[in-house]
Amino acid sequence: MNTLATEQLPTPGTAPGVELRALDTLWFQVAGTVCNLACTHCFVSCSPTNHTHEMLSLAAVERSLAEATALGVREVYFTGGEPFLNPEMEAILAATLKVAPATVLTNGLLLSPERAARLAALAAGSEYSLDLRVSLDGWDAESNDPIRGAGTFDRILAGVRNLAAAGLNPVLTVTDVCREASSDAGKERFFALLRGIGIDRPRLKVLPVFQIGAEAERAGAYESWQRLRAGETPEDGWDHLQCSACRMVTDQGVWVCPILVNEPAARMGSTLADALGPFALDHPACWTCHVYGVSCKT
């Protein structure tokens, strides 16, 4: 077992703090940490048996949406676990698209032709954009399946095909576990893969890995030097960090961001109003966001 991230915390009060400048992005851990996959690089270690966070009900999502609406929310993101395991997911999307644009981060396995058609109808019926982001970790089964699970490459591509056939153009999300993904040549390989299944405007997002959760077991945890410290505040501030404009709602309360939901210290309160204060960047994952310029947004 790796060294505990929480045991590496610097002296309290020494990490720089980030103010929330506006609640632009509202995240929902809509499927909790429950997933039909158990990817070896998952920074929240989601699996069929991880109930650290449980699913959110439509009523719970609507309560937070109402609160976020009063705060001027700009966009809503759904993640998990696998969002489409939530039996109310489509009703949740319908409710959301009445007030704001929405993005769903999915593993693509539950995107049947019927569901894809219903999602396309939801998108067509809203004045706001609906985006689907489908995760994949390689150009073929040999590279993807060891990470995401046996047989997943073909099933993910089938889901992407179903979205495309329904007129939706998903964003393929790839992590740096796929070594070449961030190079121009690597991106071109993913674009070619998408074009090969009939998507003529391929979209791709490449994310670095966070060395926490399952990924820490797979490839190693953070080193103690991978920390932000007081005095490291950039000249133009922390506006590049997503936590300067987002909060995450789970069934356990409101958290600073989508990455740290398995760190109790990153829970900020029970409601969004409780969670509008500053957050101290004293987790090594904050270092990744800063150094790699990460935003979980599309």
């Binding site: 790796n2 505990l4 929480t6 048996t49 926490i212 959760g213 820490a216 945890a221």
Partner: peptide
Amino acid sequence: HRGLATWGE
């Protein structure tokens, strides 16, 4: 994770 939670690592 049956019956357990992930807290960091």
